[in-house]
Structure formats: C-alpha cells, structure tokens
Design a protein around this nucleic acid. Structure first.
Length: 208
DNA sequence: TGCCAGGCCCTCTTTAGGGCCTT
C-alpha cells in the first residue's frame, strides 16, 4: 500500500542525460499531504566535476557554490529517506525520474512510489495554454511566483502550486470531490480528446 | 575537450518526422 503523501521534486543537473554521464547538482522537493505542504528538502550536491557555463547561467548555480557541497551519494541517501514510499510528481517527470533512478542506483537505493507528471496532466487540462513550460503555466494560472525559476526548490514549489491548481480545476469543472492518484495516472495517459469523457464517466461512477 | 537524450504527441502517421518539455 502506497503512502498518501506526494513528493513534488525538481532536479538541477549538469545536462540532459544521465546515460551520457550527466549528474544531479541540486535537488529540491516539497512533501504534500492533503494538499498542504508538510515538509521540504533542498540541497546542492557536488557532481565530482566542473559544470559548464551554460548550466551556470541557466541555473545560477556556480562551480564555486558546488565546490564545498556534499557528494551526490550523501545528498541522495538523505533524499531517499525523505521521499520514503511517497508517490512522486515532477514537471516533465520523464526527465526527473531518469535522474532520480540513476542517482539512487549509484547508492543501491530505489524509488518505491509511483511517478506522475504535471506536464502531461496540464497538456490535457489546460489545452488552451500558450505552451506548457512551468513558468508559462504559472503565469497562465496567475499563481504568485516570488523567486528564481531553474532553482530546484523554487521549481518544486511552483510545480506543487500548479499541481494543486490543476486538482482544483478538475474538481470544479467535473464536480469531483476526491481525485485519487489512480485517476491522475489514467488521466496522464488518456488521449486529449477523451479526457473530458474520462472525467465525466468517473464523476458519474462515484455518484452512483 | 567534445560529445550529448528520451518520452510524449501531432500529423501531410503507423515502412516517419519533427516539435515540445526537462538541464
């Protein structure tokens, strides 16, 4: 039985692909229980090599900042304890799940919960958004954002706020009081044209 | 130092190509 909490997480990394040798340099996460932030986690980690200027400019994380940071192994062990068996959420989860799996595999740990993706859900629920980048969606939904995008904790916090807004909008549009994680998992795989029908059928089913 | 991915999703599709997202 999976825990009811969900951990919303975001990695900053040296690049796009752990299979090509890229490593995590920062993890940020918030733990939600019943829609309320109950805990958070943020840490820089030293990937064991210098990061390039693109990543320094993109994230604002510099080689000077990473030099005294603890190793990826130390940080990720603490993060594995933090997430426990919680379900997981990220904006473009395929990216963050690859890095999470890769970093945990290096320390003989593994992901226990199930991942879902706010990008896939937002493409289905906010079909009129200009695009589905995290920052665009935060603006699109008028969510207050006081901080720097492309830092792990801030992006995780913004993803969490977007997620709660998504759940609110699904509840409001389809008159669904409780949205189980299982419904979200199905929603994220449903073709866009069939999303309204899925939610309508679900609403009918739980009321009967 | 230089190299650099992968999953989703649409369409002029499925014997494929290219844009979107993440760093």
């Amino acid at each position: 039985m999976l825990a009811s909490s969900i951990v919303v997480l975001d990695f900053e990394t040296t690049g796009l692909s752990p299979d090509q040798g890229d490593r995590a340099i920062e993890i940020g996460a918030v733990k939600l229980e019943n829609g309320i932030e109950v805990d958070k986690f943020q840490a820089l980690m030293n990937p064991g090599r210098r990061i390039n200027s693109f990543i320094e400019n993109y994230t604002g994380i510099t080689n000077r900042m990473l030099a005294p940071a603890p190793s990826c192994a130390k940080v990720m062990a603490e993060f594995a304890d933090f997430i426990g068996d919680s379900n997981l959420l990220a904006h473009n989860a395929s990216f963050d799940s690859r890095f999470l799996n890769a970093e945990l595999a290096r320390i003989d740990r593994e992901v226990l919960g199930e991942f879902t993706c706010s990008l896939l859900v937002s493409r289905r629920i906010y079909q009129d958004a200009p695009n589905h980048k995290l920052g665009t969606l935060i603006n699109y939904k008028n969510i207050a954002a006081d901080g720097s995008f492309h830092r792990a904790l801030f992006d995780a916090q913004m993803t969490a706020k977007l997620w709660l807004k998504l759940l609110d909008d699904i509840r409001e549009r389809h008159d669904i009081e409780e949205i189980p994680f299982s419904l979200i998992k199905r929603l994220a795989k449903t073709p866009k044209a069939q999303v309204a029908k899925l939610l309508s059928n679900y609403a009918t089913k739980i009321r009967s």
